[in-house]
Amino acid sequence: MSIVTFIKSTPDTAAKVEVNAQGAVSWGTAQLVLNPWDEYSVTEAVLLKEAHKVKTTAISIGGEANNDALKQALAIGIDEAVRVWGDGMDGHDSLVYAAAAAGAVRKLGDVSLILFGKEFADVQTDAHVYQVARKLGWTALGAVSKIVAIDFAAKTITVARMTEEGKQTLTAKLPAVVAVLKDINEPKSPSFIGIRKASKATIPVWSPADVGLNVSTLAHVTAYANPPARGGAVQIIDGATDAERAAKLVEKLLAEKVI
């Protein structure tokens, strides 16, 4: 009985990210941090560990920069960390990620629950969450705002899921893959003892062969570009009274034909 959470290092969301002259994505000297959505999945894993005495492992599929995220997870209270990476994985698509992640979970063995943050904030994808579940043949529960109940021995889970229309409550069998939303908890900060433990940790790296990776990338990123700038300067609406300014703005918006 153990919990795995898959995490990633991403540029700080406040960083200025742009495409440089070489066509590569650059965030200058900004720091890499734990993917903001992973703060919730890591915290949820630690809360479940404390309540149910289960082992927790954080896994990153990616280059060395992800050691920062893994150490952050250890400092927050995750027991062990593993990184999966090797030749042929650069520029991988969600399918390769899913196959590698499923292989890592099989290699660990005895995993009851996989937690993901809603998406990776850098590449803005969540496809891997559902693809990992299909590769393992497990149930996937996405957009989860609360784990209402979980029983590792009886292999059952109840979650609240937030869809476009409202809140759905679902029960399912473990093992399962769960993707969590921001609403699920208040993210934990690293503890002093945790930071010391994390600083001493060495993080094993599993190769593609170790996780039995047998698929290759089919969806290729071929180029990056800066988005078109939002045109022109703001037009500040002046007037003697709020009513006058409101009336002027209404005229402008009606002329824009957006109402």
Partner: peptide, 23 residues
């Protein structure tokens, strides 16, 4: 790319071992 669409299309792409262009 709704909540349900993201889940279903990604899952089916994995079942078919096929490429996914998401969102």
């Amino acid at each position: 790319a709704s909540t349900r669409g993201r889940e279903l299309i990604a899952a089916a792409a994995a079942d078919a071992d096929s490429a996914l262009l998401a969102d």
